[in-house]
C-alpha cells in the first residue's frame, strides 16, 4: 500500500528532517478517532471467539509489579503465577513476560528459569525519565546484564513537547544500542502527550529510532491506554509496516483491568493493524489485576460457574 505521507522519511536524521517528517504526517481528528474506537468497542465477542480471545490475552500479558514497596518475595510469587496462572487448570497458557524494576531483574530471572517466560525491565529512570542519558544507558545496560530480555524505556516527554525531536530520537537510538539483543519497548506516556496528533508523531518517531514495540503508558499517569490512543498507535504500526516492511509491536498499559477491556483491545488490533499483530510477539498488554479477571471468565466459559475472587491467587 503506497503511503506517500510517511514514505518521505529522510535518510539523514537531522532535527530539521525529523520535524519535516513528523509534521508532515496526516492529522488525527479527535472526534472521529474516538467515534471509531467507540464503534469497535460494541463488537460482541461470544462463546468460541471469547474462549480464543481469553487465552490469547493471557499469553499477551506483561504481568507487572512496579511499586516502590516491591520485595523479592513479591516478585517470586508473581513469577510463579506468570508461569502457571491457574494451578487448578494446566491448560491455561503462561503470560507473555514479567515486568519489574531493574533491581528485581535477577530475582525474576532466577524464578522464571526454565519456564520460557522472559523478564521485561523498565529502565531509563522510569517513570519520569528525568535523568542524564548516561544514567539511562547504565540503567538499561545493568538490566540487560542481569538477564532482562525486554527493556521498557520512557521517552523524554519534555523534549518531545518542546519540539526537540532529535533529542528524543537520539536517546532511543542510544538505549536501543545498550539493549543489545534485548527487545526495546518505547513508552510514549500518551497521557502527557495529550493530543492524538502527538501520539501519532511520537509513535513514528519511536519506530524510526528503532523501537521493537511502542507502549502507551507507564501506568503512573492517567489517562493511560484509552481505546482511541491504542487505535492511533495501531494505525501507526500499520502504516510503518506499509512503508518499511517492518512490523513493530504495540503494548497498551494502564487501566486495562477486565476481560471486556482486553477483548476490546484485541478487536482494535484485529480490525486496525490486522490479524498478523494478534501474537504476543507483536501485541502485549501491561497489567496486573487483569489476569485474575481473565481466569475467572475462562473458568466461567469452561465450567459454566463463576467462582468468586477468593479462588484466584492475589499474586
Amino acid at each position: 500500500m503506497p503511503v506517500p505521507h510517511t514514505a518521505s522519511a529522510p535518510e539523514a536524521t537531522t532535527d530539521r528532517a525529523l520535524r519535516t517528517f513528523l509534521h508532515g504526517l496526516p492529522g488525527v481528528d479527535e472526534v472521529g478517532a474516538r467515534a471509531r474506537a467507540q464503534d469497535l468497542s460494541t463488537r460482541s465477542i461470544k462463546t468460541t471467539a471469547k474462549a480464543q480471545a481469553i487465552d490469547l490475552a493471557i499469553s499477551m500479558i506483561d504481568l507487572t509489579t512496579l511499586e516502590g514497596a516491591d520485595t523479592p518475595g513479591k516478585v517470586r510469587s508473581l513469577c510463579t503465577k506468570a508461569a502457571l496462572p491457574d494451578p487448578s487448570d494446566r491448560t491455561v497458557p503462561g503470560v507473555g513476560a514479567v515486568c519489574v524494576y531493574p533491581d528485581m531483574v535477577p530475582t525474576a530471572v532466577e524464578a522464571l528459569r526454565g519456564t520460557g517466560i522472559g523478564v521485561a525491565s523498565v529502565a531509563t529512570a522510569f517513570p519520569a525519565g528525568r535523568a542524564p542519558l548516561s544514567v539511562k544507558i547504565a540503567d538499561t545496560a545493568a538490566a540487560v546484564a542481569d538477564g532482562a530480555s525486554e527493556i521498557d524505556m520512557v521517552i523524554d516527554r519534555g523534549a518531545f513537547l518542546a519540539g526537540d525531536y532529535l533529542k528524543v530520537h537520539e536517546e532511543i537510538v542510544a538505549v536501543k544500542e545498550a539493549c543489545g539483543d534485548a527487545h526495546l519497548k518505547v513508552i510514549l506516556e500518551t497521557g502527557e502527550l495529550v493530543t492524538y496528533d502527538n501520539v501519532r508523531r511520537a509513535s513514528h518517531l519511536a519506530m524510526r529510532a528503532g523501537a521493537d514495540f511502542i507502549k502507551t503508558s507507564t501506568g503512573k499517569i492517567s489517562p493511560a491506554a484509552t481505546p482511541p490512543v491504542v487505535l492511533v498507535m495501531l494505525e501507526a504500526v500499520r502504516d510503518h509496516f506499509a512503508e518499511t516492511g517492518r512490523r513493530v509491536g504495540v503494548k497498551p498499559a494502564g487501566g486495562i483491568r477486565t476481560t471486556k477491556d482486553a477483548i476490546r483491545n484485541l478487536v482494535l488490533v484485529n480490525e486496525t493493524a490486522g490479524p498478523a499483530w494478534l501474537t504476543p510477539d507483536l501485541f502485549r498488554i501491561g497489567a496486573s489485576s487483569l489476569l485474575n479477571d481473565l481466569l475467572m471468565q475462562r473458568t466461567r466459559l469452561t465450567t459454566g460457574t463463576y467462582p468468586g475472587p477468593d479462588y484466584y491467587t492475589l499474586d
Binding site: 463488537r43 461470544k46 468460541t48 480464543q52 480471545a53 490469547l56 484485529n270 490479524p275 494478534l278
Partner: peptide, 9 residues
Amino acid sequence: MIFEYAPAP
C-alpha cells in the same frame, strides 16, 4: 492468527 467472531445474534 485468525480471530473469527462467533455468531452473536
